[in-house]
């Protein structure tokens, strides 16, 4: 452990789930970080939640606390165009078989890009304060904007 050393406190490690900091004899050769624990030949055919990610894989870390605003997703309007999935810089749009399912709030950093690229009217994704209640906001979703002539 990093006893008495402030240079690298444990905060980042805790977020990554790697609290035990090992010594020089145990770190990997060449700073490689293995994505999965053990054998992982079929990882490509598994959904993320079924894979055995390593502690150092960012999938196991959450950065939810960094977010100040968050996107909320409205299934009723969405046309499954996949724009948000393509553009999200943090792969935080969950989509299966070309169907948009929602937002991965553990990894979404609240940048708002998905909202920008959503083509529906009204948008199927909108940004709200982090503390906003999803159900309440979905109740009050804006209605279609008429194009001004």
């Amino acid at each position: 452990m990093s006893k008495g050393l402030e240079g690298n406190d444990n905060r980042g490690a805790r977020e990554l789930g790697a609290e035990e900091k090992v010594g020089w004899d145990e770190v990997t050769q060449g700073v490689v970080l293995h994505s999965f624990v053990g054998e992982s030949k079929n990882a490509a055919f598994l959904k993320p939640e079924e894979r055995v990610y390593n502690d150092f894989n960012s999938y196991t870390a959450t950065v939810a606390s960094w977010r100040i605003i968050k996107p909320i997703y409205n299934r009723d309007i969405c046309i499954d165009c996949q724009n948000c999935w393509v553009w999200c810089p943090d792969t935080s749009i969950i989509s299966r078989d070309k169907q948009m399912l929602g937002i991965d709030y553990d990894h979404c950093k609240g940048c708002g890009v998905c909202v920008e690229v959503c083509p529906t009217n009204p948008k199927s994704l909108l940004m709200f304060n982090e503390a906003a209640d999803n159900d309440a906001e979905l109740e009050n979703w804006p209605v279609k904007e008429k194009k001004a002539k």
């Binding site: 402030e6 240079g7 406190d9 905060r11 980042g12 950065v63 606390s65 960094w66 977010r67 100040i68 950093k109």
Partner: peptide, 10 residues
């Protein structure tokens, strides 16, 4: 001392 120099990070 920044853990990660991103807005919102502790």
């Amino acid at each position: 001392l920044y853990g990660s120099a991103k807005r919102g990070a502790a």
